[in-house]
């Protein structure tokens, strides 16, 4: 029995109801169902084709070409005769590759574990178990970072981390007699990069977990309590299994989000201090090839960096799908036709 069947309110397993309808009974019905599917799917298919599939194909082709702003409009990047693997060999020739990979891995795993998944689930569980209004209030606070324009949000964190007397944290350290020191972004950049990104990222999982937990029929929780289960046991054996789908979704989606995100790091530390201390792969791609501080933008070269990142992302997504038995989760359209 699958997760979503169990999630149905009233708890009646629908498996037996579904079976007779699973196979189309006639050609006419089959066509009918295809038509319905197309009617429902076509707007999304159109949007995704236009704004994802085509740009992605362009990206793959660009990664083989030398398109840059200095030849944009004159260079025929779409001609196979203009394709080569030069961009990729340039990337392999970069001696800091392992540093960028290491930074990326560290950043994604730590932020995901502590915030985007860990805190999101923890705060969702706590706020759904306390006074409703109080829970709502704390969720709103956790959501503020995502609601705030990133420039203003980063400005705030820079102020928190700055040197005394302007830095807020250093001000407290000074008052506490611990000595307000240097800019904290210089002395502990990773701590700030992870907190700053994590506070934005956690709200995603928080909202999804909250609504999923709220969607669990009260009877289940009551039954668990009547059976004498402690709160932790209820969480472990009732709640978590019932929100497996949201968990898979948040984990996968946030892993990919973190892999490709760089905006906050760019604004906060710019990849520093020092030589690439907090430079992740996506930021490197941006710095090397997509930022246009002066002169040329190397779109082709940047595309190659992005493609490697995408390969990592797809590999991660595949692993998640295996671990969480994605096949089982999607292999269950409830019915099919009438």
């Amino acid at each position: 029995m699958s997760v979503s069947n169990r999630r149905e309110r009233g708890g009646v397993p629908s498996l037996s109801l579904r079976e007779p309808f699973e196979q189309p009974s006639s050609i006419g019905a089959w066509l009918h169902s295809r038509r319905a599917a197309w009617a429902f799917m076509s707007p999304a298919v159109l949007l995704i084709t236009l704004f994802f599939f085509i740009p992605v194909i362009v990206l793959l082709v660009l990664s083989l070409s030398d398109l840059k702003s200095a030849n944009f409009g004159t260079f025929q990047w779409w001609l196979p005769t203009n394709w080569s693997l030069d961009n990729y060999s340039k990337i392999i020739g970069d001696r800091f590759i392992s540093k960028f990979l290491g930074n990326t891995l560290f950043y994604v795993l730590t932020t995901l574990a502590i915030f985007n998944f860990g805190s999101a689930l923890l705060i969702a569980l706590i706020t759904t178990h306390i006074n409703r209004r109080a829970g709502f209030f704390f969720r709103l606070l956790w959501l503020l970072p995502r609601l705030t324009p990133s420039v203003v949000y980063i400005l705030m964190w820079r102020r928190i981390a700055a040197r005394a007397p302007h830095g807020i944290l250093n001000q407290f350290l000074t008052l506490a007699g611990l000595g307000g020191g240097d800019n904290l972004l210089q002395t502990m950049p990773w701590v700030f990069v992870i907190i700053v990104n994590g506070l934005i990222g956690a709200s995603f999982g928080l909202v999804i977990f909250t609504s999923a937990i709220e969607a669990i029929p009260r009877d289940y929780l009551t039954a668990s309590k009547v059976d004498g289960a402690s709160t932790l046991q209820t969480i472990r054996h009732v709640i978590v299994p019932m929100i497996r789908w949201p968990i898979l979704f948040v984990l996968t989606f946030q892993t990919l989000s973190l892999l490709t995100s760089f905006e906050q790091i760019l604004l906060l530390t710019g990849g520093g201090p020092g030589l690439f201390r907090t430079e992740v792969w996506a930021l490197r791609a941006y710095h090397l090839a997509l930022s246009t501080e002066s002169g040329n933008t190397q779109w082709g070269y940047g595309a190659a960096w992005a493609v490697i990142l995408v390969i990592i992302g797809v590999a991660a997504a595949t692993i998640y799908m295996r671990v969480f038995k994605f096949d089982e989760l999607v292999e269950e359209p409830k019915i099919d036709l009438i």
Binding site: S69, G274, L275, H287, S291, E293, S294, G295, N296, Q298
Partner: peptide, 26 residues
């Protein structure tokens, strides 16, 4: 500054190295 399409790469690279020097890494 020079008028050359590749100036962005040049400037970024020399600055990256400077960051490395500052951190005592280079």
């Amino acid at each position: 500054l020079p008028n050359n399409p590749n100036w962005g790469t040049y400037q970024q690279t020399t600055f990256d190295a400077l960051s490395g020097v500052q951190a005592g890494e280079l």
